[in-house]
Amino acid sequence: MPWSAPFEEPIRLRGGRELATLQQAADYIMKLPKTVQRQQRWQVAVENLINAAEVGGGWLMFARIAVMRALNAEDQ
């Protein structure tokens, strides 16, 4: 599955931005500070994004969920 593959539904960020594709989610994570990227929740998100790009199928849904969980953990 290409990195340009869209999520079934975009991930909404604060400020109105959206992450609509695997690539946009990966780019978002890569722009986070390195200390944040190393946190387990973001590592899980990255692993799921890679699996979605390499395997496709249900991994696309898992990747979306993992990114959303990592984002929601920041709010707490």
Rank of each mutant, 00 (worst) to 15 (best):
Q24K: 15
A25E: 04
A25K: 06
A25Q: 09
A26Q: 09
A26E: 13
A26M: 01
A26L: 11
D27Q: 14
D27Y: 07
D27T: 12
D27R: 13
Y28C: 05
Y28E: 02
I29C: 06
I29M: 13
I29L: 09
I29H: 08
M30N: 15
M30G: 13
M30L: 14
M30K: 15
K31V: 08
K31W: 12
L32E: 07
L32T: 02
L32N: 01
P33Q: 00
K34M: 10
V36I: 13
V36F: 06
Q37E: 07
Q37Y: 11
Q37P: 04
R38N: 12
Q39F: 01
Q39H: 05
Q40T: 14
Q40C: 05
Q40Y: 09
Q40G: 03
R41S: 08
R41K: 14
R41P: 05
R41E: 06
R41N: 07
W42I: 06
W42T: 04
W42D: 03
Q43I: 10
Q43C: 03
Q43P: 02
V44G: 01
V44Q: 07
V44M: 11
A45D: 00
A45R: 00
V46C: 05
V46P: 04
V46N: 11
V46H: 11
E47V: 08
N48L: 02
N48E: 14
L49R: 02
L49F: 02
I50A: 02
I50Y: 06
I50V: 15
N51G: 10
N51R: 11
N51F: 04
N51E: 09
A52H: 05
A53I: 14
A53L: 07
E54H: 12
E54V: 03
E54S: 14
V55H: 09
V55L: 07
G56Y: 02
G56H: 00
G57I: 04
G57R: 07
G57F: 09
G58I: 07
G58N: 03
G58S: 06
G58C: 03
G58R: 06
W59A: 02
W59C: 09
W59E: 06
L60H: 02
M61E: 15
F62M: 07
F62N: 03
F62P: 01
A63M: 04
A63T: 08
A63P: 00
R64H: 13
R64Y: 07
A66F: 13
A66L: 08
A66H: 05
